[in-house]
Amino acid sequence: MLARSGVAKLRLVDFDYVTLSSLNRHATATLGDVGTPKVRCVQRALRQVCKWLDVEACVDIWRKEEGGRYLEGVDWVVDAIDNIATKVDLLHYCHAHDIKVFSSMGAGAKSDPTRVQISDISYTIYDPLARSVRRRLRVLGVASGIPVVYSTEVPGDVRLLPLPEAEFARGNVKELNVFDDFRVRILPVIGPLPSIFGLHIATYILCELAGRPIANPLPIKNRRKLYERLWRDLLTRESRLAGEQLNRLPIDEDDVSLIFEDVHLGRSVVPPHAVPTKAVLVRWDPREEVSVENVVVMEGREAERHVRECWDLGRRPGEVW
């Protein structure tokens, strides 16, 4: 869609080859292309559609040691890497060098197209790949500023496809890797989902290039309001317990996001860890100060009981819950 919409130059970087298992989602590959580099298939198809397009196909992998080898002079980078370490390295490099980058999270084991959304990496929820990427980027000092497409669909009981016994009999399965540390076995992917992810990315970038950016995607608005509410509720509760009006807390809205999304996964700390109808934050141990480690997610009624039992009656949280 980028080429069809007027983008004049594309550089495709991928080490992978077309396989039988990828034909269900590879729009430009045919049965005769099995064993062919994916970027060559895309290059051939795009040249048939857009004669003027300058498309460079690189059968290679981006490595952080080589830095900007494939990134010099680009307007946008689209990250669709599966390997988490390489994905994080690329996103961190682009962020550090002010290169615009859009990242795609995982479409594997997902089936509901209505759950696909665009947001900043800091506002992603329910996506295991996004969670891992977000945590690693935070360690590297990148908390936000990277747009992503992801699905809020909660992964079900989907397992890796078993390899036939014949494959094990032929030798070490790990030798099937194209590169070390890259997975061989795959999660099932329903054909349309990667395309839907790609259309989200293309639309976002085209709007940016046209000077009409999607400035504030809806999920970002909703999550920001949630974090603001959780922070204000916690401030009100702490003020009431302190007997005076407090103006600030030792944690901010970014910390609230970390507590709610990453630590508690949007669920109550109280077993069976249900998703709260109205989530609130509350200090877990009243003897300790408010901190990321000492603030938990609860349902409103659970928080009321927690305050009554642990603050008013002096019981330990472990005795109550």
Rank of each mutant, 00 (worst) to 15 (best):
V116D: 07
A143K: 14
R134F: 03
D157N: 14
S104F: 02
Q43T: 01
R115S: 07
Y93I: 02
I61R: 15
A109Q: 03
D127C: 09
S111A: 05
L137Q: 07
Y123Q: 03
I81C: 07
H26P: 02
T36P: 00
S151H: 04
H97K: 14
I118L: 14
V148A: 10
V154N: 09
S151W: 04
C50D: 15
A57Y: 08
I118A: 05
S144G: 02
R40V: 00
E66K: 14
V49K: 12
P155N: 13
R63F: 05
K100P: 01
Y70I: 08
A107Q: 03
A57Q: 11
L91R: 05
P37R: 11
R136T: 03
Y70E: 10
E66T: 07
M105G: 01
C50K: 13
R63N: 13
K64G: 06
L53D: 10
L137D: 09
H26Q: 15
I125G: 01
P128M: 12
F102Q: 08
A109E: 02
R134A: 07
V49A: 14
G108A: 13
D79Y: 08
S119Q: 03
K110M: 04
V78H: 14
V139H: 10
E153I: 03
L91T: 02
R63H: 12
N24S: 15
V74Q: 15
H97V: 03
D157I: 04
R135S: 08
G73H: 14
G68A: 15
G73I: 11
K51L: 09
V55K: 14
K87G: 05
D75K: 13
T36S: 09
A85E: 13
S144R: 12
V42P: 00
C58Q: 13
S132K: 11
Y123G: 01
L129S: 03
I61F: 15
L91K: 06
S151P: 02
D112C: 03
D157Q: 12
D79V: 04
L71G: 10
S132Y: 01
C41V: 00
W76V: 12
A109V: 04
L31S: 08
W76I: 08
R131G: 01
V42E: 09
R159K: 12
D112F: 03
C41H: 00
T152Y: 11
Y123K: 06
